[in-house]
């Protein structure tokens, strides 16, 4: 266990060094936050009724998404892991007396947590200082707050295992484009990062309720702004747990299978 923690630590600390990338990331997140909120505000201003979400809840939701974007987005490709799969250095990883799955999971988790640590606070502060319709409102009640914190922690693990699964699929395809790209785009859309789930047509909402992607970003933040009630919140957390278990099992089986017939690329 200790060794996995140190992988995590290593990645986390290296990640914190990339300040310039973080500034650029913050700027991008702020920019997109402003675009998204402006578009939705324009929509709400020009249509009288039938809103799937209240405007101030929606705006806060969009800002929370932007602030924690680097923890939530599923379009993540770990260059190091992909490189060792492709160039055959995976052989070295296999020589270590450690579990490949846990090792990679702690690396991905470390990198993403370092990214979000550098980024979320400036975005939140900026969003809090904006004038009224664009403003992020952090006010919530204690039960919602506690539940959404639990949901956020679980979704961090959920997204890590989803991304890890993509990388394990790469061990079969030896290519991070093609199928993996299609999987990642679908995941990104169904996670509600592109547009919030309540705006989906109803059949897609039903599909996304079953799949794990929605529980990554849509669920914890909509819970926070109070768009999901407590009962659904508790059910959602249970679904998150179930999906985490399923993903870990699938990921482990696939990685074992991939290693059994692993062909070491290159020489």
């Amino acid at each position: 266990m200790k060794s996995y923690l140190s992988y995590f630590n290593l990645k986390f600390k290296t990640g914190l060094q990339y300040r310039a990338a973080a500034y650029a990331g913050i700027a991008t997140q702020l920019f997109f936050g402003i675009i998204y909120t402006s578009v939705y505000i324009a929509f709400y201003e020009s249509n009288a009724s039938n809103y799937p979400m209240e405007l101030n809840k929606l705006i806060s939701f969009l800002w929370l998404n932007q602030a924690f974007f680097s923890l939530m987005y599923l379009w993540h490709k770990d260059k190091d892991i992909l490189a060792i799969i492709k160039n055959g250095n995976i052989a070295y990883e296999l020589c270590r007396p450690q579990d490949l799955y846990l090792m990679w999971a702690s690396k991905i988790l470390g990198e993403r947590l370092s990214m979000v640590t550098l980024r979320f606070l400036p975005v939140l502060i900026f969003a809090l200082l904006l004038p009224f319709p664009y403003k992020l409102i952090l006010k919530t009640s204690i039960p919602f707050f506690l539940l959404s914190i639990i949901a956020l922690v679980l979704s961090t693990f959920l997204s890590t295992f989803l991304i890890l699964l993509c990388h394990i699929i790469c061990m079969f395809t030896l290519d991070e484009k093609g199928i993996v790209n299609i999987f990642m785009v679908t995941a990104d859309i169904l996670s509600g990062l592109v547009i919030p789930i309540p705006f989906f047509p109803s059949f897609l909402q039903k599909i996304s309720n079953i799949l794990p992607f929605r529980y990554v970003s849509d669920f914890p933040f909509r819970l926070y702004v109070g768009d999901i009630n407590i009962r659904e919140g508790i059910i959602g957390i249970i679904i998150q747990l179930i999906w985490i278990i399923i993903l870990v099992i699938i990921g482990r089986i696939l990685s074992k299978r991939a290693l059994r017939k692993a062909v070491i690329q290159g020489g």
Binding site: F43, S46, N47, P52, I195, F199
Partner: peptide, 10 residues
């Protein structure tokens, strides 16, 4: 999706 819920934007 957005236009499925809203009829127009400005």
């Amino acid at each position: 999706c957005l236009f499925n819920k809203f009829s127009n934007i400005k």
